[in-house]
Design a protein around this nucleic acid. Structure first.
Lengths: 339, 339
DNA sequence: TTGTATGCGTTATCAC
DNA sequence: GTGATAACGCATACAA
């Protein structure tokens, strides 16, 4: 039932002029008679002519579309980054195509292929937690498509990167706990082959080392995912140890919330008996009881900067050679879940 | 620096055959010599040929892309709906283009125009809270683009609709509060010209009426937005009344959380002195103290069904005439923030 | 079994 | 001032 859209040729035919004249009239070409222009514009208006961007893309060999690959969007973290991206890209003449990898390497491969086929002009990506091979991103680059990696690093991939100093965030958090007198600080870490997981773990370890605190293997537990339910079992495991921790540094706010939940259920007092510290500073985090101490990340800025870098490459095709690496500093936000 | 991608013509030239043969070989046309097919496929593989979807779209006059217009994605509500949409559409040969209106009518207009120009094949939309004129959606339909409206209704627009029975959700919630002995039930309502706001307000009012409870104008306050901060002032306003409420039915969980926050600060005991009930059942809601009673909506299903309906229209171009209207039943989830 | 011609909608280039 | 033509990459009806 699809009506044929009005094309430039339709208008040309009706007005007994050539399609090129119509095209020129619509673009206000200086060397056209006023009457012709007016007639074309009037009819275009009347018939509600809409230019076919597909034809233009094919002609110009660029789709004016940017692909954004993220693991998921239900967390505030990625949805806020995307909002930042959108706010920047929306002001340009590019569109964004948001793609969800569902934390799956397989799906990520398929998405990259699809974006390639769609003649996407550039890609912003935060790899899935399964991804540890980045050839699919290199393939994009080989096809002349600039790639900007954000939040989760792709070690070994040469590309623009907008990251957060997770190491520093973790270090600050753990050293703070130490300063406040915590002696047994446990860590609920993220899925293993994620750059952020490693950096936060290292920050945790180095903070302990620097302060001559013992590192206990059993105090480091990695959770399988990023949601509340993923934190319950690991938290219980920690509390049931012979030498249970007096503080927990969790890989994100969701997991921290799970840990608080478990601690409360077990009758532990927060922060008197157990300090809990998260990562991300989600909007809800200041509404829990006790309010959650956490590490804030500039999510919106991460999105904006990533988009800006990509757009700058898209404008000047020349300086593709030097890649930028921008690292945001996270900030400790102390509330009431820690001593 | 964009390298020219390999085209069907490149392969044809190399193999001294015609582009059409290459095209056929790639599609396993039955009437082709095995050798030719193999040679083409081998070279396509070797050169990593990628079909240009843009050219195909132009040829077929369909982009295989579905536009999704939502007010925002930072809330769990919309991001979960989108995840549902993606999970369905991802299994088809369509892609989705997610567009954020930022709750702005103006931006929504621009987005619709852009989607039209991009030759989008179908649209899934939840209108902005400012939108009360739907001609831009009718324009899509006039161009043969099926439109499915989800969650927020567009009164007067004839289109497929996937909604939630907000009235029933609100009615259940308020009647529950009445059953539990609440005498002064206030309502923190949403922005005014939103269908959901109206339906929830009506559910609230009817529950009061049915139970012969007085309706107090001053107990109905509309919040300006959907986030925590938007609820603080309105909640304070309610508590400072001469006859403060003993229960609050809030338009969403965020606002309910704000109200809990304010109540606690004022030293009110929840639920003994004040019952609080939200709407949405966000993942965090069972982790607040007290855990939040709320109305659950099948967010993921809303997304999936909307996508399925749109896809079915896209497959069979015929039955565009009768529009479906699907209404999900929300469910009351009682936790500890209500008596 | 394969090649040729055509068209999808637009614009740049050259011609008149 | 305006028209004709070619080109973007692909698929297909029609020829051969």
């Amino acid at each position: 039932m699809k009506k044929n859209r009005v094309t430039i040729t339709d208008i040309a035919r009706e007005l007994n002029i050539s399609p090129s004249t119509v095209s020129r009239a619509l673009k206000d070409h200086p060397a056209l008679k006023r009457e012709t222009k007016d007639a074309v514009k009037a009819l275009a208006e009347k018939w509600d002519y809409q230019p076919n961007l597909l034809a233009l893309s094919l002609l110009n060999r660029k789709s004016n579309t940017i692909g954004v690959i993220v693991p998921e969007i239900t967390s505030h973290f990625f949805s806020a980054i995307i909002t930042g991206i959108q706010d920047v890209v929306g002001k340009s003449d590019y569109n964004i195509m948001i793609c969800l990898s569902n934390e799956s390497y397989e799906e990520e491969l398929i998405l990259v292929k699809k974006l390639l086929n769609m003649q996407i002009d550039g890609v912003l990506v935060s790899p899935s937690s399964e991804t540890d091979d980045f050839d699919h991103f290199r393939k994009l680059q080989k096809n002349g498509i600039p790639v900007v990696v954000f939040d989760r690093d792709c070690p070994g991939l040469e590309a623009d990167k907008v990251l957060v100093d997770d190491y520093s965030g973790a270090f600050q958090a753990v050293e703070y706990l130490i300063d406040r007198g915590c002696k047994n600080i446990a860590h609920l870490g993220g899925p293993l082959n994620l750059s952020t997981t490693g950096h936060r773990l290292n920050g945790y370890l180095d903070a302990l080392r620097k302060n001559n605190m013992p590192i206990r293997r059993e105090h480091i537990v990695h959770v399988p995912g990023f949601s509340h339910k993923d934190g319950i079992k690991p938290a219980k495991k920690l509390f049931q140890l012979d030498n249970p921790p007096d503080a927990i540094f969790a890989m994100n706010d969701n997991i921290a919330i799970s840990a608080m939940h478990v601690a409360k259920k077990m009758g532990l007092k927060i922060p008197e008996e157990i300090s809990i510290l998260g990562f991300d500073d989600e909007p809800h985090s200041s509404f829990f009881t006790p309010t959650l101490s956490t590490v804030w990340q500039p999510v919106y800025s991460i999105g904006m900067l990533s988009a800006r870098i990509l757009l700058s490459h898209l404008k000047n095709k020349d300086n593709q050679l030097k890649f930028r690496k921008e690292i945001f500093k996270p900030e400790l936000v102390i509330r009431n879940s820690s001593k």
